[in-house]
Design a protein around this nucleic acid. Structure first.
Lengths: 245, 245
DNA sequence: ACCTGAACACCGTTCAAGT
DNA sequence: ACCTGAACACCGTTCAAGT
């Protein structure tokens, strides 16, 4: 019983950080004293430079000129650190979004904003998909939801459509992030990577994998962004088209 | 130059394991001597019982009654071990698929097969999305591709559509896996988890998150599988509907 | 209140040495 | 060829002790 309520208490904190609930900020901000914000900025620096494996409490405390234990005064654990770093970046992305005219164009702009952000910060792709329903996901969910509503989708169908769009975006983003990190770890670039996949797929068993083989040749020259947007348009067409029954 | 070719060589091995290229198996299979297959089965056992964190080379070698070093004779590293475990499960899932009549029904069956597999083995969700273009992904990609072709989609549009379906499936699966593992780690069940998210969302700032708030109440009672299939149907409607221009 | 840094309990991986 | 197990170079996290 007590166990249960403690756990629920923890889950309850989802999205309860200051930036989502709108509270006055404490005004103290001394020189270079440690703070949650400084820790998050330094974490992003490490993640961008060296990937998810590059963020450790030791390198982080070194960069911040302190001890590993000091960080735990401001942040509960590594998971919270990753989510907070992710949230900071997503918040910036959503603020800087290009605005479209129609709801469709706005949905495309939101999707492309996330896509490009993940391309720029590959570590974010895997963190985002593991974020359960924490704040970074809500920051994406909300504006998509508003546009789906603006599209005139009936109330009862909005939830499913918004989650579908979000899932697609996170799925593409997660895979892209994995590919980018794979390539970076091996020290190869995008075209070398795609060339290798293409060549591997074209050598698959012709009886068992005819489709994959037939598509292999298209891999090296395709445009990730164009394909991603084509998928968004596919879903948008599905939204517009009448439901059976 | 040498560096480059070595790296490409590694990437080149994507999908090159025996089961994909169809080679004769070596017939030796002594008592309980260590083998790649035995290692993979034991890994799945640990992953299912204790999650991704439960698979370590120490616990694994203990279960196999050997030393940690012995495993490295059969498997290169932990990443390969995870991919191989994932691949074994996906292969079984694809073999046991319920067959549909129409291409649409077959696509739904494939998608639902993956969805249920991830629900049964949450660790698989995150591994699958990080699998780049390795064999487990091709096992899913291929049958979807055949059905998209059977749907009469023109050659030039098949790739994008198949990747869209795959991305959606992986996106839902990855999020579901994260939610399930989150709940399991806290020792709470699905309904406690959703209740907590719902309550957190309903307390978001009304000016900034009106849509998320409006949806909060629907979370505890929704059916994951139904929603997932509704998303698949959304994409299927998009495929059927005519492209503009 | 906030920071220090040694210490704890782990990891994945390597490798000389065995059979 | 295949296995052993100690050793290496790390991890995240804790906590007594400081200021």
């Amino acid at each position: 019983m007590e166990h249960r309520s403690i756990n629920l208490g923890t889950a309850f904190q989802i999205c309860q950080d200051k930036s989502m609930v709108k509270k006055a900020r404490s005004p103290k901000r001394r020189d270079n004293s440690l703070s949650r914000d400084r820790i998050i900025e330094a974490s992003i620096e490490l993640l961008d430079s060296y990937g998810e494996r590059g963020l450790t409490f030791r390198t982080l405390s070194e960069l911040l000129e302190t001890g590993p234990g000091a960080i735990y005064w401001h942040i509960a654990n590594k998971g919270e650190l990753l989510t907070a770093a992710c949230d900071a970046i997503v918040a910036r992305t959503m603020k800087a979004l290009l605005d479209g005219v129609t709801p469709e164009a706005k949905i495309r702009a939101i999707a492309l904003g996330i896509f490009d952000t993940i391309a720029a910060h590959p570590w974010l792709g895997s963190v985002l998909i593991r974020a359960e329903f924490h704040s970074p996901l809500v920051r994406i969910f909300e504006p998509i939801g508003r546009q789906v509503r603006a599209l005139g989708v009936p109330d009862g169908e909005q939830r499913v459509i918004v989650f579908s769009l979000l899932s697609y975006i996170l799925g593409v983003g997660g895979q892209n992030a994995a590919n980018l990190q794979f390539a970076r770890t091996r020290g190869i670039d995008r075209s070398d990577f795609l060339e290798a996949v293409s060549s591997a797929w074209s050598q698959l068993d012709p009886d068992e994998y005819p489709f994959a083989r037939s598509i292999a040749g298209q891999l090296p020259d395709h445009d990730d962004r164009v394909d991603f947007l084509a998928g968004i348009d596919l879903i948008l067409r599905g939204i517009r088209s009448p439901r059976p029954g």
